[in-house]
């Protein structure tokens, strides 16, 4: 006796279904802070790419006659003590910030994913080794290590990017390892094993798609983190070597002249703070939107 045919209904899938990405976007859209953050981040990205072209002045151009000037039509964000146009400085800074933040986060991320997957899947000695390394990275003040690396290799783009990247992987590794470990002994992997899947197949088709969302969220949280580290290096005088502009340098320099020339602080610090918040809102929104078990 066969089972009666199922009455199709809202609980069953509709014939032409919306994609999972579409559902995630619908969830994302409901969070207006995340949407606002995304708009800002996109704006930031665009400026990062075209900033140098639309900047009215070069970041090296100085105008001593108009140094330390408040906002005017000529220099809408004012000028600093060397007569740099602050608006142009900020446009150039965005590019530097993006290169370092994305580059460093990418390095941390790749190192973290590889080590985390390896530790989670292999277990045993591999896991032991990676986790002790992670413990070491967490116990050791990484900012201090950044300083050492930058001191050793110089204050250029490359060394700073590398220094921040190579010290930031531990969090990603730990996250991915714990996710993989949680799934490795679960029924999903057991079912795939029972079907005769190879470890490679299980990793590619079962584990990776399930850690991807969490990784994306971690990545989105990681970028503002790296931006902060980069600015922090500037504050202690080990950031990008001037005249290369960066938010950290501008904020550090403005700090000394806060009472006399406050606009030197307002614009870079304000934009930098909003950018950090925007990235955090985006990360937060992603976290909510990508949770597959949250209703739809």
């Amino acid at each position: 006796m066969a089972v009666a045919s199922m009455p199709t209904s809202s609980a069953t899938a509709s014939p032409r279904r919306r994609s999972q990405l579409g559902m995630a976007w619908r969830r994302y859209r409901r969070n207006w802070l995340a949407v606002a953050g995304l708009v800002w981040v996109i704006l930031f990205l665009i400026i990062g790419i075209i900033g140098p072209w639309i900047a009215p002045y070069s970041y090296q151009a100085t105008d001593f006659l108009n140094a330390n000037q408040g906002p005017t039509w000529q220099h809408i964000f004012g000028t600093d003590n060397l007569g740099h146009d602050m608006f142009s400085e900020i446009l150039w800074s965005v590019q530097n910030a993006l290169e370092i933040a994305f580059g460093a986060t990418l390095i941390s991320f790749v190192v973290g994913v590889i080590l985390g997957l390896w530790a989670g899947l292999k277990g045993g000695a591999a896991d032991m080794f990676v986790m002790r390394l992670v413990d070491f990275m967490f116990a050791f003040p990484t900012f201090f290590m950044d300083l050492i690396l930058v001191t050793k290799f110089g204050r250029g783009m490359g060394p700073i990017l590398f220094a921040i990247g190579i010290t930031g992987w531990a969090g990603y590794a730990r996250l991915i390892r714990s996710l993989v470990l949680g799934m490795r002994n679960g029924e999903m992997v057991e079912a795939a094993t029972a079907l005769g899947a190879t470890q490679w197949h299980i990793m590619r088709r079962y584990l990776f798609p399930n850690v991807m969302n969490s990784m994306l969220v971690a990545l989105a949280f990681g970028i503002p983190g790296d931006l902060t580290v980069m600015a922090g290096l500037s504050v202690v005088g080990m950031g990008l070597r001037p005249p290369l502009p960066s938010f950290g340098n501008m904020i550090a320099a403005a700090g000394g002249n806060m009472l006399g020339y406050p606009w030197l602080m307002y614009f870079p610090a304000g934009i930098f703070a909003i950018t950090l918040l925007a990235f955090l809102f985006v990360a937060d929104g992603l976290q909510e939107a990508l949770n597959p078990k949250g209703g739809f």
């Binding site: 006796m1 089972v3 009666a4 045919s5 199922m6 009455p7 209904s9 609980a11």
Partner: peptide, 10 residues
């Protein structure tokens, strides 16, 4: 002989 209630709850 089993006589299942067809369908499912909604």
């Amino acid at each position: 002989v089993l006589q299942p209630i067809p369908g499912t709850t909604q």
